[in-house]
Simulated scan of single mutants.
Amino acid sequence: MNLAAQVVDRLAQSKCRVVFAESCTCGMVACELGKVPGVSQWLCGSAVTYRNDTKTRWLDVDADTIAQQTAVCEVVAKQMAQGVLTKTPEADLAVSITGHFGPAAPAGFDGVVLIAAARRQSSGPFDVSVSRQQLTAKGRADRQVEATERVFQWVLRNL
């Protein structure tokens, strides 16, 4: 069973509806899940927010934070997950991904992705976690595939 099918199976087992906020993966996470029969009961959607202005307008990510820290930082990853969960009331879990695939990434950020998750709580604010990961693939297309797999692995470990 491939990773996307495993994720859909785990979502069904846990009766968890998920929504994504994707930057560097450009919708590949949702696209791969969409290939699995039965996913429509568990996948609420995905906001592809590649550009910074889209992150601020669609997900309420703070523009000042992006200006000061770039879009590839823990705060932005968390705000992306919180924003898409806020705007998707039927979802139980939101997962976001942002990162640099190169070739012109700032020093120390080439191949870095941040995956954040926000879970709806019965009362109070969302429970939010973030993971910084270094991709091993070279080249944008291969990194996009690896980043998508990393999101699936995160979901499988944390559901």
Rank of each mutant, 00 (worst) to 15 (best):
F109Q: 15
G83D: 05
S96L: 05
Q79T: 13
E74R: 14
T98V: 04
A107E: 15
A105Y: 04
A104S: 14
A116H: 02
P103L: 08
E90K: 14
A94F: 02
A91Q: 06
G102Q: 12
S96M: 06
G102N: 08
K78Y: 08
V76C: 13
T88E: 05
A116G: 04
T86C: 13
V75H: 05
L93P: 04
P103I: 11
G102K: 12
S96E: 10
L114W: 03
G108C: 06
V84I: 15
G99A: 04
G99H: 11
A117R: 14
T98W: 00
L93E: 08
D110C: 02
V75I: 15
T98F: 00
Q82F: 06
V113P: 07
Q79D: 11
P103V: 11
H100R: 08
E90N: 08
A77F: 11
I97T: 13
L93H: 03
V113E: 00
T88M: 05
A81V: 08
L114C: 11
V113Y: 05
A105E: 05
D110L: 04
T86M: 10
I115N: 03
S96K: 02
V84M: 05
I115D: 01
P106L: 01
A91T: 09
A77G: 02
K78A: 14
L93G: 04
A81D: 12
K87P: 01
A104D: 15
K87S: 14
G99C: 02
S96W: 00
F101D: 00
T86V: 07
S96I: 09
D92K: 07
L114H: 07
A91Y: 06
V112W: 02
A105T: 09
H100K: 10
Q82K: 14
T88D: 07
A91N: 09
T98G: 00
G108L: 03
E74L: 03
Q79E: 15
A81R: 04
A117C: 15
A105C: 06
A117P: 02
F101H: 10
L114G: 01
F109M: 15
T98K: 00
A118C: 06
G83Q: 03
E90G: 01
T98D: 00
G111K: 03
V95G: 03
S96F: 01
A104Q: 14
Q79V: 12
V76D: 13
V95L: 06
V75S: 14
T88Q: 07
T98L: 01
A81Y: 04
A91C: 09
L114M: 14
F101M: 15
G83S: 04
K78N: 13
Q82A: 12
A91I: 12
G83R: 03
D92I: 07
F101E: 00
A94D: 08
P103Q: 11
F101K: 02
A91R: 04
V76H: 09
Q82S: 11
V75K: 13
D92W: 01
A117H: 12
